[in-house]
Each structure stands twice: as C-alpha cells, then as structure tokens.
Computed example of a mutant assay.
Amino acid sequence: MSLASPLASPLAHPLSAVRQRIAQAAAAAGRDPHSVTLLAVSKTFPAEDIARAAALGQTAFGENYVQEAVDKIAALRPDWPALQWHFIGPLQSNKTRDVAEHFDWVHSIDRLKLAQRLSDQRPAELDPLQVCIQVNVDSETTKSGVRPEDASALAAAVAALPNLRLRGLMCIPAPREGLDAQRAPFARLRALRDAIAAEHGLTLDTLSMGMSADLEAAVLEGATIVRVGSAIFGARPALGAKA
C-alpha cells in the first residue's frame, strides 16, 4: 500500500510540526532530538493513513485494539516491512497470542500473568518482545497500570522471562495545566525507573511518556518515546480517547 507524492500528503504538515516540537523540547533539555522516538498512535485510523505517514518517514506506530491492529499490520507489511508495531493499550489475557505473534513492543504490562503469556507465546523465530511496565503514577482508579510501590517486584519478574526484553516504564498521567505541573509525574516515573534499574542491576533505557498535549514536559524529563496521535492524524471518532 504505497502512496505517491508524500509532500502533498495531508499528514505532511502535522507530522513535521510534531517533529519540530520534539526537537525544540530536546534542545531545551540539552538532549539529542534523535534520542526521542516519535510513536505515531494510529488506533482507529485506517491503514491508508499509516501508509501516508510511512511515506513521510514515520516508522513506529502505536495501536490499542488487537484485531484492528492485526488487520492493519497484515495489509501494510507487504509494502512496508520495516514498520515497527507497538501495542500500547490495556491487554486482555485472551489477546496475548496475537500480540506476541505480530507486535515488536508492548508498553502496557501491568501484571505478571500477561508477561508470562506473552513470553510463552512469542514465536521462536522472532526476536524477544520489547516491553515496558505501565505504572499508574497518579493512582487513578480508572486507569491501568501497576502501583508505583509494586513496580520493582514486577520488573524483576518480567526481566527474568526468556522471550521478553524489559526496556523500561510507561505512564499515562492525569491531565494537568502548565508545564511544571505536567513535568511532575514524568519526573516521578524517571526516578522510579532509575531506582528499579539500580536495585536489580537492570539496563532500562526507555521511558514511554508524553502525548499530544504534554510531550514537551515529557521530553524535558527524559522521555525516550512519546506517543502522539491526535496532533498527527487529527480528531478521532468517538471510539477511544485521544493519545
């Protein structure tokens, strides 16, 4: 599914604008912009939109809904075999096989049972599945994620599984107004990641944090992956919240 004239794409300007925001935030933090991966959150958008973004050089895409994602991966893989697929939503046990077989990353590990199933179901011919532990940094009852005080034990257990590679932590904090307020939960996640790495002797190089409204704050606090959907693809249908 290749598309002509990428510069004429309706995604050219918004994608460029997001990349510029990342570059400016990285410069303000004294960081290399290339140390921040832009994950385009393509959930609910059609494969054609992903192909348009891929034609503009975007390679990493985030999905929340397993069957929708598997269908899009199958449609796009023949023309775009190098795309990287990240599962970023809540994951049910009965969906782990599809995720283990089709995705490169999972950001939303919040219990050991899920991690064990993903490890057991990862095909032997594929590289280890790259994973992050989702931390509920604000202790919100409506959000997934392990409690911060339980993250260390879960990290140690996940890191020991044979077909997974634990890369770091992910969070979706409650919305906040103002840069300083937005930075606070991201700073907590960074400190937690560093403490877990030191406690268990783990190499944890990933902080998946920051979305369309707060990516600058996340980059300032060390985000290595920012998950941006609406600022690239526009408003979503009513199904699913903005990323």
Results as ranks from 00 to 15, higher is better:
99 V>S: 07
99 V>Q: 05
99 V>C: 08
99 V>G: 06
99 V>F: 09
100 A>Y: 05
100 A>C: 10
101 E>N: 12
102 H>G: 00
103 F>N: 00
103 F>V: 00
103 F>I: 01
103 F>C: 00
104 D>F: 03
104 D>Q: 03
104 D>K: 00
104 D>A: 05
105 W>C: 01
105 W>H: 11
105 W>T: 00
106 V>P: 15
106 V>A: 14
107 H>S: 07
107 H>P: 03
107 H>Y: 12
107 H>C: 04
107 H>V: 00
107 H>Q: 15
108 S>C: 01
109 I>S: 10
109 I>V: 15
109 I>C: 06
109 I>Q: 05
109 I>Y: 12
110 D>N: 14
110 D>Y: 13
111 R>W: 09
111 R>Y: 11
111 R>V: 12
111 R>G: 11
111 R>M: 11
112 L>H: 04
112 L>I: 14
112 L>T: 07
112 L>S: 10
113 K>Q: 15
113 K>N: 15
113 K>M: 09
113 K>L: 13
113 K>S: 15
114 L>T: 14
114 L>S: 00
115 A>C: 11
115 A>I: 08
115 A>G: 07
115 A>V: 08
116 Q>W: 11
116 Q>C: 13
116 Q>A: 12
116 Q>I: 12
117 R>P: 08
117 R>A: 14
117 R>C: 05
117 R>T: 02
118 L>K: 06
118 L>V: 04
119 S>A: 08
119 S>Y: 10
120 D>L: 13
120 D>N: 10
120 D>S: 13
120 D>A: 15
120 D>P: 05
120 D>W: 06
121 Q>A: 10
122 R>S: 12
122 R>I: 12
122 R>C: 12
122 R>Y: 12
122 R>T: 12
124 A>D: 14
124 A>E: 14
124 A>C: 04
125 E>N: 13
126 L>K: 14
127 D>H: 12
127 D>N: 09
127 D>R: 13
127 D>M: 09
128 P>T: 10
128 P>G: 04
128 P>A: 14
129 L>H: 09
129 L>S: 12
129 L>A: 10
130 Q>K: 15
131 V>K: 01
131 V>C: 04
131 V>P: 11
132 C>T: 03
132 C>D: 00
132 C>L: 07
133 I>N: 10
133 I>Y: 06
133 I>W: 13
133 I>P: 14
133 I>H: 09
133 I>C: 13
134 Q>Y: 04
134 Q>P: 14
135 V>W: 02
136 N>S: 06
136 N>C: 06
136 N>K: 09
136 N>P: 11
136 N>Y: 12
